[in-house]
């Protein structure tokens, strides 16, 4: 059983955070909210999302699991205006999702969850450095790095209490530094890891530009990037595995 009403904005934010990484996903319809965990086909990037039942106008669910084609669902959500409400109801018999937006009714065929890539185990990460920045700062760093390279190094200089970004191209380089006072928060610890910009650019699309994003970093370890949405009732964590530099 699943029946819920949610604002179009919240629904779109939810879907967009996952669709930057995968085309299809499983959605757990728990009694206290929904949960999505997905990994890209190369097992390099992962998203872990929860949206509390309190973020919905109304919410009834009892622990079901559905598989959805994200771009299809995004298209439907795109039919709603910003403030409009979207009503979702699962038909258990036909395994279809009925979606109503004002007078519009859309019946969405679901995907067999077993045909979707298995949900990943969460890596067990104990990361020494934590940086809290505005989403816009990451956007700036990613765009600058993208001008010269397809990889980006994220690091924390513990001694000088700095967060820095390096990108080395064939000819040109980019370096960007943020001091403690430029940051919302910093837990200093030595950290530096290199990441594929292909993935980070996609994840960057999901970051709210005007809100806090928390980065957790280590030495040649995955980065965890966390932010809240839907007024704190939704939570997204991206994880991205590093490229190890052999020299």
């Amino acid at each position: 059983m699943f029946k819920a009403i949610v604002s179009a904005d919240t629904l779109r934010d939810t879907l967009d955070s996952v669709s930057v990484l995968v085309d299809e996903c499983k959605i757990h319809l728990n009694d206290d909210g929904i949960e999505i965990r997905a990994v890209d086909p190369a097992n390099v990037g992962m998203v872990d999302l929860t949206l509390s039942a309190d973020a919905f106008e109304s919410y009834e669910a009892d622990g079901g699991l559905i598989g959805v084609d994200l771009s299809r669902l995004e298209d439907i959500a795109g039919m709603a205006d910003a403030g409009q409400l979207v009503q979702l109801e699962l038909d258990e018999e036909t395994r279809k999702l009925h979606i109503q937006i004002e007078g519009l009714e859309y019946t969405l065929a679901l995907i067999d969850p077993d045909s979707i890539r298995q949900e990943p185990d969460l890596p067990d990460l104990d990361l020494p450095a934590q940086v809290v920045v505005e989403g816009a700062d990451i956007d700036r760093a990613v765009r600058a790095a993208d001008m010269v390279s397809d990889h980006i190094a994220l690091g924390v200089d513990a001694e000088n209490e700095r967060f820095y970004v390096d990108a080395e191209g064939d000819t040109d380089d980019v370096h960007l530094e943020l001091e403690r006072e430029d940051l919302i928060d910093l837990e200093a610890g030595d950290a530096r890891s290199l990441f594929s910009l292909d993935y980070l650019k996609d994840m960057n699309k999901a970051f709210p530009k005007d809100a806090e994003v928390t980065l957790e970093l280590g030495e040649e370890f995955p980065v965890k990037m966390h932010f809240d949405f839907a007024e704190g009732l939704g939570s997204v964590t991206f994880m991205l595995a590093p490229r190890i530099q052999s020299n």
């Binding site: 990037g45 890596p123 190890i244």
Partner: peptide
Amino acid sequence: GQRGLGAFT
């Protein structure tokens, strides 16, 4: 060189 997340599980 590119690690997968599986290497950290």
